Amino acid sequence: MADDREESLEKRRAQLEAELATKRVEAKVDEASEARAEVSRKGYAQAMKLSSEFIAAILVGAFLGYVLDRFVGTAPWGLIVLLLLGFCAGVLNVLRSAGVVAHPLDDDKK
Rank of each mutant, 00 (worst) to 15 (best):
A2D: 15
A18S: 11
A27Q: 10
N93E: 10
V60W: 09
L20C: 06
D4A: 09
E31L: 13
G43D: 10
V94S: 10
K23V: 05
F54Q: 03
G86D: 00
V101P: 03
P76T: 14
L59V: 13
G78Y: 06
V101K: 12
E17L: 03
D3Q: 13
D108N: 02
S8P: 00
D30L: 09
D4Q: 07
A98F: 04
G99H: 13
A62I: 15
F54I: 09
K109F: 06
L16P: 02
M1Q: 10
Q15V: 05
D69F: 08
L105A: 03
G99M: 12
A56Y: 14
C88P: 00
F63Y: 10
L83H: 04
K42C: 10
L16F: 01
R5Q: 15
F63A: 15
T74W: 14
H103P: 00
E10P: 03
R41K: 13
R41P: 01
R36L: 09
N93D: 07
V29G: 02
L82R: 00
K109N: 04
D69I: 01
Q46D: 13
L92F: 04
S40P: 01
E19M: 08
P76G: 15
G86C: 05
E7F: 05
A56G: 11
A89G: 01
K42D: 14
L64V: 08
D106L: 11
A98R: 05
R36A: 07
P76D: 14
A37Q: 12
K23R: 06
V60R: 00
S40K: 10
K109H: 10
S40H: 09
S40G: 07
E10K: 07
V94T: 15
E53I: 03
A47L: 03
E19F: 04
F54A: 11
Y44L: 15
I58Y: 04
A98D: 03
K11C: 03
I80H: 07
L82T: 09
E26W: 02
L95C: 10
L64C: 07
V94H: 12
